[in-house]
């Protein structure tokens, strides 16, 4: 780790100005991913601007429905918040499926959104990686790819996004509030994340110096019937092989509306729009679920070690939809 300066931010505006004005500066939240990367030499900032104590640690109702989650709300507080557990259970479930109790107690909402891939080659500075060193090549594409992408990958990068929380937020159409050098802006979460393309070094569209201050959840009554299912190699404390966040609105056995997002399959949380489209208006039945899941996965392209993710993603989608609609069918 190279030496760096440390400053505690007094307010968002000055934090943004400081980071924007120094190419080697980064924001520090709890550090559970940044410090990890600094130890490995993956990140080498020369200034940390500590934003973890900015007054963004509140969860509050939004005018016109919905909920605003402050950027520094800790993952465990968010998962425990009654409003989240009751109105957006898939989000609480996704948070609780991530990391460990002691990490969730410190990890922040914004930090969770911006955590970087756990691709083993990205984390090992002795191997080439386009995300870490653009142009050096992708070690994963012909390497150990058990955990890698089946959707939306490029020849330059086959990494997946590791967050569980972000999968639920993607299904919920969350909006990310950003403070930047040229003022605030709002981004739909689906616009925040990018596919790797030929710029895998960029996980998101955020510019240097832009700071996430909050995440807004829109009013979404159907989210009260939602869930998050994570399939992983251990029963706990492991990143997803495949995960599914879903919410359904079923009336008289028909899917009036549905939201589905997948984790562990792509460079970003994957909104399963094709599956949603196939399901809207369809009967809440096994065949329809299977058909919709297959529709979503038609473009899936496995790598050497991860062909299993296709049936796993399909079956997990079906399982989740079956679980959410089961009461209806009873």
């Amino acid at each position: 780790m190279i030496p760096f300066d440390y400053e505690r931010a007094d307010d968002a505006r000055s934090a943004v100005a400081t980071v924007a004005g120094r190419p080697g500066a980064v924001f520090l939240g709890a550090g559970t991913n940044l410090v990890d990367h600094m130890k490995l030499g993956v990140a080498n900032p020369d200034l940390l601007v500590d934003v973890s104590r900015l007054p963004f640690d509140v969860i509050e109702p939004l005018q016109g429905g919905g909920v605003r989650i402050g950027a520094t709300v800790r993952n465990s507080d968010l998962a425990a918040a009654p409003v989240i557990r009751q109105r957006y259970p898939m989000l609480a479930a996704a948070l609780l499926a991530g990391a460990s109790g002691q990490l969730r107690n410190v990890a922040t909402t914004a930090g969770n959104l911006l955590q970087r891939t756990r691709c083993v080659y990205f984390q090992d500075v002795t191997t080439p990686c386009n995300k870490r060193r653009p142009g050096s090549g992708c070690s994963a594409v012909e390497g150990y790819t058990r955990d890698h992408a089946i959707l939306g990958a490029s020849p330059h990068c086959v990494a997946v996004h590791p967050s569980d929380m972000a999968v639920a937020l993607t299904a919920l159409d969350a909006v990310v509030q950003v403070e930047g050098p040229s003022g605030p802006r709002s981004l739909a979460i689906s616009d925040l994340y990018r596919l790797p393309g030929d710029q895998p070094q960029r996980d998101t569209v955020l510019e240097h110096g832009e700071l996430i201050t909050a995440v807004d959840l829109p009013e979404l009554p159907m989210a009260a019937r939602s869930s998050y299912r994570k399939v992983r190699d251990r029963a706990s404390y492991a990143f997803a092989l495949v995960s599914v966040a879903a919410a359904v609105d079923v009336v008289d056995g028909v899917m009036r509306d549905v939201r589905i997002a997948l984790g562990g399959v792509a460079h970003k949380p994957w909104r399963a729009s094709r599956a949603e489209e196939a399901l809207r208006g369809a009967p809440a039945a096994e065949d329809a679920f299977r058909h919709a899941a297959d529709a979503e996965l038609t473009e899936a392209r496995p790598l050497r070690d991860n062909a299993f993710k296709i049936p796993m993603a399909r079956n997990t989608m079906v399982t989740v939809l079956r679980g959410l609609t089961w009461e209806e069918g009873r």
Binding site: Y6, R8, L28, A30, G31, T32, V35, D36, L48, D50, S52, S100, G101, Q102, L103, N105, V106
Partner: peptide, 11 residues
């Protein structure tokens, strides 16, 4: 409860 290996002391 919190892990201390990824927390910077200065923070």
């Amino acid at each position: 409860r919190a892990t201390t290996c990824l927390a910077l002391a200065v923070a």
